[in-house]
Design a protein around this nucleic acid. Structure first.
Lengths: 335, 335
DNA sequence: CTGTTAGCGCTTTCAT
DNA sequence: ATGAAAGCGCTAACAG
């Protein structure tokens, strides 16, 4: 079912069929209707590959994410998909499973597929080879969640958010606050959050403690150790929601209550946190909006024929979901 | 950066460059190395659109899913992505947000993008217009999670699984079992699970009760009503994990305990259920494998030059995750 | 083993 | 308002 066939059956040239679809004004109403009707009957659908080849634009945006198994990124992708559809773009998502080498493969693939631009969440913008490559070929891209002065980024101020959170915890009387995070070197977000933690603790005059859990499967055991150690923390500040959910389980498995014995906080604001009991207390990122904003930035640049520059970076505002997993430090006295 | 440029700089014809990449054996080692080296220096990447246009195959599989916000589908997509990558295919996922009209748009889009085949989760295979269209154009497709005699499907036996679950609950002494589900008409899965419920209840000689929650936002209120009604159920058999998680919250909000006062079971086996407290008791579907198997079916057909037929349908085995949200009926006596 | 060439389906000058 | 024709980058005969 090519444009040729439609042209033949409608008794016009292929050029006219093309115009009927893409520049309806340049075709007489009569012709246009005939073409449309024939096309409909034949079930004609323009061939995207041919159009892309000819026009050098695919109307497809590439998306590079660590994983979809973490709802944060699923929510973000959802926002990307809706915003893209709204603006007439399809999306082509690729997942890296947190492996840096995969970032390059992903970018290569997307470049081969002629995407008009890319939205990516990389491990570390400062060292990412994938990003260098994008720079070199001059492809438009925007980073989501990452934060770096030299790149266009859409994110929240993680560092500030965590600092504020520490202040909040300190205000609730918590003195023993431990941060729980995944492998710090694995992402700039984790590092930013950790910096925020250090800063907040210093401001509060408290001694920071850190539990780094490189492998998620070890989280339960590591957390159990932490909780049952000599000086038990009264609050666990987790670097993301998934970790927080595991932490809550670990606390309970240890026979303690959340938040009476130990408060637990998350970071991300995944929707599921709302349905837990206790409802997750967490720093909420506007995940869908981070995605949507990234799309808008890219598309704007595409329209303007420019590259998104680092000056177009946006810090979206985060918020605090009070939830039920975080309480005052002295609530620990058995009920 | 086209094949022309590489050819020129390597001092060979474009055909040779093409062969160097696609049929390395048909090129002398020397030439091949020269071509590869030039290509590498130039950062040459074959243009997928051109290749697709020429070969009439894209090596892309389309995927149509209701949403990625439900981890079931995110897990499935993850399985699809890995299996596809393994077999040399990229994937192009589209989301329908559970809107039937979107199924058609999705299929149209994917057809336009020249996908070699599709994997879809539709609302109802029996009535899906999108499926009719696929049939008509003769595009290879496989349904995931759906189940229908006339289509190639990869799923578990939901009906059987729920029947078994009812038997299990009855064995635990539950007499008042209520099923909680989303809009029944919204998916064949929900209907199958409901049928399994009815059958199990009949076999157990129990009176079935059903709570249908068409709009997810009303779930909490509807569940509260159910729980606080005259004859409180001792077990809530939820049609999916997300619903079960909400149900657990509703029970607790009502001041009751899970599972001591009310047992709650899910269906899906999302990974997150493992981290909850109580750990979700649920029927586990091999989500990633459902995705991977779908890919394999499609690719097999692609290789064989045939369409996947309904006879290639596969029922994968489900399992039961005991969890902690389901207990015996008489455990209700206050601890 | 390598080169020449046609053509995939489409858009877009350039004519008319 | 419409048509003729070139060409996007690639692969696959076909020729040598």
């Amino acid at each position: 079912m090519s444009i040729q066939e439609v042209a033949r059956q409608a008794g016009v040239s292929v050029a006219t069929v093309s115009r009927a679809f893409n520049l309806p004004d340049k075709v007489s109403a009569e012709t246009r209707e005939r073409v449309e009707s024939v096309a409909r009957e034949l079930g004609y659908r323009p061939n995207a590959s041919a159009r892309t080849l000819r026009t050098q634009r695919s109307r497809v945006l590439g998306v590079v994410l660590p994983t979809l198994l973490n709802p944060v990124f699923a929510e973000c992708l959802d926002g990307i998909a809706h915003a893209a559809a709204e603006l007439g773009y399809a999306i082509l998502p690729v997942t890296t499973d947190y492996q840096i080498g995969q970032e390059e493969r992903a970018v290569d693939l997307l470049l081969s597929e002629n995407v008009d631009g890319m939205i990516l969440v990389v491990s570390n913008p400062a060292t990412s080879i994938a990003l260098q490559r994008l720079r070199k070929v001059g492809a438009p891209y925007v980073l989501a969640y990452n934060r770096h002065a030299d790149h266009p980024c859409v994110s929240v101020d993680s560092e500030l958010a965590v600092t504020q959170l520490v202040t909040r915890l300190a205000g609730l009387g918590h003195q023993q606050i431990a941060m729980v995070c995944g492998q710090l070197s694995a992402s700039d977000r984790a590092q930013q959050r950790y910096r925020g933690f250090l800063q907040g603790m210093q401001a509060a005059g408290l001694a920071p403690r850190l539990l780094e859990v490189p492998f998620i499967d070890d989280a339960a055991a590591a957390l159990a150790d932490l909780i049952q150690g000599d000086t038990r923390p009264t609050a666990l500040l987790c670097s993301n929601d998934l970790l927080a959910i595991r932490a809550i389980r670990a606390v309970r498995q240890a026979g303690l209550r959340v938040p009476e014995d130990i408060s637990v906080t998350g970071f991300d604001g995944i929707a599921l946190g709302l349905d837990l009991t206790p409802m997750l207390s967490t720093v909420v990122q506007p995940n869908a909006r981070i995605g949507a904003t990234s799309v808008e930035l890219i598309v704007q640049a595409l329209i303007g024929g420019t590259l998104p520059g680092s000056e177009s970076s946006q810090i979206l505002s985060h918020s605090w979901r009070a939830g039920e997993s975080c309480g005052a430090a002295d609530a620990g006295s058995p009920a």
